[in-house]
Computed example of a mutant assay.
Amino acid sequence: MSKVAQELRLQLAKTLTTSGHLRTQPWRDAVESVPRHEFLRGGFFERIDGNGPTAWSPITPKTPRWLERCYEDESLVTQIAGTIVPGDLRGEIMRAPTSSSTMPGLVVRMWEDLRVEDDSRVLEIGTGTGYSTALGCHRLGDERVTSVEVDAGVSGCAGTALAQCDYYPHLIVGDGLLGYPDGAPYDSVIATCGLVSIPLAWVEQTRPGGTVLATLGGWMYSSELARLTVHEGGTASGRLLGGQVSFMLARPQSPPPLGILPDLDQGDEEPAKLAPDVLDDWETRFVAQLAASGTQRITLDRDGSTEHVFLDVEAGAWAALRQNGGQWLVRQGGSARVWDDIQGHVTRWRQAGAPHLDRFEITVTPDSQTISWPA
């Protein structure tokens, strides 16, 4: 297998170079050297598409083309429902993924975007399978990489795979949103989980002039990679990098359960200035999240028609939109006017020329996080 795997690694590096994700020789050397399949010995899940809920089927080293699949540029789900791994299952499962091996193209793009130097000390949030961690170790050396994983079982499997490949970074089991202060200060922080807000701990644990690279989004699931430079005084600023990058949200920042829905028939209907399908666009949905960061979006079939419902569970606010002929109508209730906030923010963005997300600026202070488009 070693010769075949080596050829597959070389082909993967060539593919990632051609796509523009792999841009410098040190990271190409890492991709050509680190055996991704060793981090997928436990198998992964394949999505089974159908008319009902998404189902997942296990793929193991005994499955045909397992090795080849390990070196394709795709994300591979490695855990379902917080505990279930491929070896636990025969047949299919209809539960939500909770851990994965990120597509190599995104992994190396992020490492390249981090812009490390040979002597950089990096804090990685989200060890996962350990493949990304191994690339960091190959590039920087084991002693310069600290990786935090919230799931002890996932961290243990990653540690075994890393040791099998002769990499021995500092592996920490804990809440990655707290960073790891015992190893601070770091030159860079890189996160392989989605976020609603940048934890202040990461800024505090990064030296002034250092970099924080993470994916920012919201509970309507539009997100982008952000690169921030840390400043004196515990602040950081930077920009979104674009590319529609998404990760599973960090568990502590996942949306709350919807619970019992409010009475969506209360209140008066009025014409909506924007139709809810404007949020089918990735950039528009990201802008909407800035105005309603605690809002989740669902659709309901009621009285023979589809309603688009926006719920802020924690604030106790909601909006429900339905189409009547060619017109969209909205009802709103609770502590805030959710749809008014969304359509107002989207309208102002459009009036500014709808600048692309890679022009948006982020500022993090001890008191707040702001994301805005250029004036």
Rank of each mutant, 00 (worst) to 15 (best):
L22H: 01
R207S: 14
R251H: 11
T299R: 11
Q332C: 14
D49G: 10
F286G: 00
V245Q: 04
C157K: 11
S197I: 09
T306P: 01
S2I: 12
T370L: 12
E307Q: 13
E38F: 09
Q266F: 10
E7L: 12
G179H: 06
A288P: 02
P208G: 11
I48K: 14
L178R: 14
N324V: 14
E314F: 09
R139T: 08
G344V: 08
I59H: 02
D151F: 04
L357G: 06
T133P: 05
V122P: 02
M220C: 08
P276K: 12
D187V: 02
G183Q: 07
A184R: 09
E143C: 08
Q253Y: 05
T370R: 14
V148P: 02
G50N: 12
D367Y: 11
D358Q: 13
Y180L: 04
T211R: 09
M248R: 06
P97C: 03
G82T: 10
A226S: 14
G238V: 09
G20D: 04
L261Q: 14
L249C: 03
A96N: 13
T370P: 02
S305G: 05
Q6K: 09
A191C: 15
R9A: 04
W66D: 03
G325M: 13
R90D: 15
H356G: 15
L89Q: 12
V309R: 04
G316Y: 04
T54M: 11
V230F: 06
P58K: 05
L258S: 11
G159N: 05
S246P: 03
P181C: 08
T206I: 09
R297P: 01
G156R: 08
S197E: 15
